[in-house]
Write a protein that binds this DNA or RNA. Structure first.
Lengths: 222, 222
DNA sequence: TTAGTTACTGACTGTTTAGTCAGTATTGGC
DNA sequence: GCCAATACTGACTAAACAGTCAGTAACTAA
């Protein structure tokens, strides 16, 4: 039986915010915003709850900061990439979707929309912030590609925002679904298989002259 | 200034459960499960909180009862309808989706998946109950249609569950989205327009020999 | 009218947790 | 080594809320 020595205190002003945000992301995604306890976030970051309040004003401000720091840079990066106009809208659409999967859908960041949407009614400011800084800017990326594709006659003519919604919403939802029912849905389709099937059917349904596509998966799960 | 006369007490053993469930559905969908207060549910049903506990064991049991009473009958109804085998799988798929929209997507019942998914981590029993009694049975409906369609060569060959997921998940999510961002997304696409565009692109992308389809909407919102 | 039954009430309890702050311990300058 | 300056702590508080139960009043049958 060793004496329960209290962990030695450290002063690390620079590193704290990042560590707290990382811990907060973990706990928020695991438990949801309401059920996340600030004590647990602090503990995972290796500090006490008091320290949390040295860096963030409130629980809500912490969530806002998580969104700000983790999602907004990715959007900004996407905007830079999209600025280099690609000539092939179908390929660009595929590229954007794939990038979403790599950067967000396959990481714990994918849990943020669920978080924000679940609490949108109780914390409208967070929802608004997310909507303006992530959703609208993300939609703009897709929208430009859709407009180009329609103008070129590659995509069937329609409201560009439709293409945007049809392309990305199913994937966000599938992530939420898998996250929520992981313990129930033992024979769920692998999210990456879903991603490819979705892209295939989407493009096939959207293109004016569908390419011959690879066959859809017959037995996605072993 | 009238005297604040306490509303006269009433004894209505038969009607209470239904009224409480209706009030609970309202408040759960509005606030989410965690943020819903039992006092408010009771108040909306015109009773006190104590009465609530005469009819339901706990808050969690109340949610389970809401799912049981509002969703399960609809699934059962759908199973009856699907038992009358339809010869045209594409039309049947369209019919199932449209029925989902009419009975669930366009009503407050559409808020239940959001509710259950948001709290799945904290109340796994509720998620399990929903999954087994609603999701699995709903999937089975779609799956049978998908299998028939593939066997007839009407749908492209693939894992039938994929068709099921591709057909319904986007719609569930779009409902959640609109509900969550109603106050932010002032130029959102009308859900019914989204429904038709989705069905169009889905079938176009899924059929081995796509029908000539009506054009996609150009300006869905006025 | 009265007495018995029970649906219903609402004040109360216990618990949980966001947010506070007086005090402590580490650091860096001298 | 000593002394600020300040990053950090954790016990505390106030509030919110699920769940309880002794008491109340609506109904019923005789």
């Amino acid at each position: 039986m060793s004496a329960p020595q209290p962990a030695p205190r450290q002063r690390r002003k620079e590193a704290r915010p990042g560590e707290l945000l990382a811990a907060a992301l973990d706990v928020f995604v695991e438990k949801g915003f309401a059920a996340a306890r600030l004590d647990e976030i602090a503990q995972r970051a290796g500090v006490s709850k008091g320290t949390l309040y040295l860096y963030f004003e409130s629980k809500e401000a912490l969530l806002k900061a998580v969104v700000q720091e983790s999602m907004v840079p990715l959007i900004a990066e996407g905007e830079d990439l999209a600025a280099q106009a690609a000539s092939d809208p179908a390929a660009t659409l595929q590229h954007l979707v794939t990038r979403w999967w790599r950067e967000i859908g396959s990481t714990k960041l994918g849990g943020i929309p669920k978080l924000v949407m679940a609490e949108a009614g109780n914390f409208p400011e967070v929802a608004q912030f997310f909507f303006e800084n992530v959703v609208l800017r993300g939609q703009a990326l897709f929208r430009r590609v859709a407009e180009t594709g329609i103008a070129q006659g590659v995509f069937r003519p329609c409201e560009p925002m439709l293409i945007c919604d049809l392309a990305i919403k199913p994937l966000i939802f599938n992530h939420m679904w898998c996250q929520s029912f992981a313990h129930c849905d033992t024979s769920a389709i692998d999210p990456e298989v879903y991603l490819h099937a979705h892209l295939d059917v989407l493009l096939n349904g959207l293109l004016t002259h569908p390419h011959p596509t690879s066959p859809l998966p017959e037995h996605p799960q072993k």
